[in-house]
Computed example of a mutant assay.
Amino acid sequence: MLQIQELCKAYDSHTVLDNINLRIQRGQLFGLVGPNGAGKTTILKVLAGLLEHDLGTIVLDGEETSTRERRGCTKISYMPDYFGVYPNLKVYEYMEFYTQLYGYKGKEARKRIEENLELVSLYSKKDEYVETLSRGVKQKLSLARCLIAEPELLLLDEPSSGLDPRACREIEEVLHTLQKKQITIIISSHILHELSRICTNIGIIDHGKLIIDGRVEDILKMEEKSKPLRIRFTEVNANVLKYLDSHALISNLIIDGTQVMMQFQGDSLEEASLLSALIRDGAGICYFAREESSLEQLFLEITKGES
């Protein structure tokens, strides 16, 4: 659905995007994560045609596109991280305004308004004024507005920022529904545990560079070997310590009473082999596991020491 090649953007001497290369398949829900100022919003604005890039190409659905073409393309819809409102409009009037901008009238306009308000569970609020809505409801209304033209690529900049857990879950459910319709979604967020639940793929960006991208489970699996292995024994004897210290896949062995922490550069089968060998040697083991792997840990490791 989308291919980004060597995308660059700079303001004077400050590089915002540095040779970004990315391929996103149709129907993927792609999470773009990174520290503040990493370039997430800039990427989304460039893709939406709201910002001109300096170098690189953007191929949408097999065709290279210019900034002007993307800006006027109904295949793309962009939801910013803030909600610009017309305070004197009601919810239905707000949606009606945008359907008219897209050229829909009469029955077709009513159909699109009602379907999208129902999708985000806002039809019951159609006669309420926009300015009286909570932030979470405004975000859902903004999302409904994005769907009027039935886009194929949906760009969401921090859609869950500042929302309570219930509102976040409601947005999440809508995104799952859209993904089932094969709409490609790119979402930027700092709420990493949320991305791990809803995204099929993620990309981590830092200082304008795409550090890593791929399927969520593949990235976490790749990181698994770097996670420390923790073993807690009923007692620790010299033979056990000697065996661990001489093991080819073990390094950074740390002993704290009956608890041992180490770097183990093996896969799950080699972990099982290590556990079996220790038990055969008579070791009493009450805990044997890797430290938990998560997107938060991966994010902190990749961007450590950066502000």
Rank of each mutant, 00 (worst) to 15 (best):
Q3N: 14
I4P: 01
Q5L: 14
Q5D: 14
C8T: 10
Y11W: 11
S13Y: 12
S13P: 09
H14D: 10
V16L: 06
V16M: 07
L17E: 08
N19C: 14
I20Q: 10
I20R: 08
L22E: 04
R23Y: 12
I24T: 01
Q25H: 14
R26D: 12
G27C: 02
Q28N: 14
L29T: 10
L29Y: 02
F30R: 04
F30V: 07
F30L: 06
L32P: 01
L32V: 05
G34A: 04
G34D: 03
G37V: 08
G37Q: 08
A38I: 08
A38F: 04
T41C: 06
T42N: 06
I43C: 11
I43N: 03
L44R: 01
K45T: 14
L47G: 00
A48V: 05
A48W: 06
A48T: 03
G49C: 07
G49P: 01
L51F: 09
H53T: 10
D54N: 11
D54W: 03
L55M: 11
G56R: 01
L60G: 03
L60T: 05
L60I: 07
D61N: 15
D61V: 03
G62Q: 13
T65N: 00
R68W: 11
E69K: 13
T74V: 12
T74G: 02
K75P: 00
K75Y: 10
I76H: 00
I76P: 00
I76D: 03
Y78W: 07
